[in-house]
Structures are given as C-alpha cells and as structure tokens.
C-alpha cells in the first residue's frame, strides 16, 4: 500500500514538474524579451540569452506612468467591487437552484443556461446599457455589462452545492430553527469555500483582464483601466497594419507605435499584479480541505 502511494506521488511530481516547466519557460522568455534591446530581438529573434539587454521598454512605460498609475487604481477598484458583488450574486442565485425541492427547478437551470448559448450581440446590449441605464463613461460601465455575473459560474456553483453540500446538514440546521437564509449563510457557504475561491479567482481575472467594456462604453481617458490602455497600445498597431491604404498616410503615427520589447513589457506589467494577488485565493483551496476533514 505505502509502496503504491509513493509511486503515485512520484508520478504526480514528475508530471506536474514537466507541465510547470512548460508553463514557466514561455513566461521567462516573455520577461527576458521585455528587457532585451529591440535590435537584438529583430536580428536574432526572441532568445533566452539576448545579445544586449535594455530597459528601454520600461522607460517607455515609465513615461506613461501618470496614465498607468491612475489606470491601476481603476482596475483594482473594479476588480475588488466587481468580484465581491459577483460572488454574492452568483452564490445567491445558485443555491436555491441547487435545492431538489425548489419549485420550477428545471426552468431556472434552463433560464440560466440559455444565456450562455444566445446573446443579442453588441449593438442591442450597448443600446440598453447606454440608453436605458445611461452608464456610458461611468465607472459602472466597467463593472456591470457582461461581467457582473456569468451563467457558467452559476451553473458550476449550483452543481457544486448539489454534490458537496449534504441536504441532511441543511435539514438539521432547519430543525435547529435556522431559516433558509441563515442555513445558506452559516452552513452552505462555509462548506463551499473551494468553489467560491475558484469562482472568485476567475471573476477577478476576468475583471482584471477586461478591456472590452472599456473599449465599448468608455471614451473618457480618466476612466481607462490598465488593460484598456495596454490593449490600445498593442491592438492599434495591428489595425493600422491591416489598413494598408491608411498606413502610407499614417507613416508618422506608425513611428510612434511601441516596439516588440514594449509589447512584451506591457504583458508583464499586466500580469504581475494577478500573480501577487494569487496566494490570497489559494489559501481557500487549502482551507477547503481542512473544513472537510474537521466535519
């Protein structure tokens, strides 16, 4: 027995080590490229051992620091508020759906699932948010449309509640006099920390990485989020080069576009903060185990 579990551990380590390596190597290449000189990237390609190092890419970003600093603030705000609201709404919707005895059980599941298959597209969504709710150029535009709650997450959490929260526990609590809502809050949620942490992580990543809402609903530069700014810098050049008629006229604009190493530096600047925030979520994966074990 002990022999076998050792063997499994060994297997787990070797597979995970290999995969981690495959994940880390490109990331290392990304960081190294961002501190390589443009010349060595163009002449020798991306390399782990560039001929010449240069911090020019970060100088470029430093020049835009005024903009970037503010944008970081906006991003952090929408990520925190958005993720919190999203977690609350998602679990509140998913819990009743997970109950076997809720009226119209299948209807709710279908109602949520349908939103994952069909959507009206950007134009009608935009019309509703800007005409009815008037959120254009407000901070809400970065939080509410599309991101606030995701049907996929609702269904995941529902499935989790169904499989991992024993109905007997809820009944026991109700016999003890706890109402539905108290049972949800006192019993179901604490038991569900792993999935909450998972969804929270996904939501946080979504908010952090979102540029689409900014691109669509915000034209006021003081409300740009970090990804919004980074994304403009990267994609504008792509669009420009797709439009060959314009690019001969726009020669000057082309010259001001950032170089490869800047694009790499941008990616680094965009990703690092999530890595820093990651352990916060991780804590709950481990906590999940202990709650299960204690019970």
């Amino acid at each position: 027995m002990a022999h076998e579990s050792k063997w499994i551990k060994w297997l787990a380590h070797s597979v995970l080590m290999t995969f981690s390596f495959a994940c880390l190597i490109p990331f290392a290449l990304l960081i190294i490229s961002s501190i390589s000189s443009e010349q060595s990237i163009i002449n020798n390609g991306y390399s782990f051992f560039p001929q010449e190092f240069s911090l020019k890419a970060y100088d470029y970003l430093w020049d835009h620091w005024g903009e970037l600093g503010r944008a970081y603030g906006i991003t952090i705000f929408i990520t925190v508020v958005g993720t919190a609201a999203s977690l609350a709404m998602t679990s509140m919707l998913a819990y009743p759906m997970s109950r076997q005895d809720i009226p119209w059980k299948n209807f709710w599941a279908f109602f949520v699932f349908f939103t994952l298959l069909f959507n009206g597209g950007l134009v009608p969504t935009y019309l509703i948010y800007t005409q009815v709710f008037e959120i254009k150029n407000t901070i809400w535009a970065l939080i509410v449309p599309g991101l606030l709650m995701n049907g996929f997450h609702v269904l995941l959490v529902r499935t989790f509640f169904m499989t991992s929260v024993p109905p007997a526990l809820i009944e026991a609590a109700q016999i003890d006099g706890a109402g539905e809502i108290k049972a949800f809050y006192k019993i179901v949620l604490p038991l569900s920390m792993p999935i909450m942490a998972t969804i929270g992580l996904f939501e946080a990543i979504m908010y952090w990485n979102d540029w689409f809402n900014g691109m669509t609903y915000v034209t006021d530069p003081s409300l740009f989020s970090i990804q919004n700014i980074l994304n403009r810098i990267i994609t504008d050049i792509q669009f420009l080069s797709n439009n060959s008629n314009l690019s001969s006229t726009a020669g000057e604009a082309m010259a001001e576009m950032p170089t490869t190493s800047v694009r790499m530096a941008i990616a680094v600047v965009g990703v690092l903060p999530i890595l820093i925030a990651y352990p916060f979520f991780q804590k709950y994966f481990i906590k999940g185990i202990t709650i299960g074990a204690v019970k």
Binding site: Q131, E134, N137, S222
Partner: peptide
C-alpha cells in the same frame, strides 16, 4: 440580508446613475 441589499442597491445605483462624468 445585508449582502442582498447591497447587491440590489448596487444594481439600482447602476441603473439610476448618470455618473459624475458626462453621460451620453
């Protein structure tokens, strides 16, 4: 209940808000 209210309030605020910056 508080959480539920906050979320509702958030929603309503989003609906009713013209925002401090210029609306459309």
């Amino acid at each position: 209940w508080g959480i539920a209210f906050i979320v509702l309030a958030l929603l309503l605020a989003a609906c009713g808000s013209n925002g401090s910056s210029n609306g459309p």
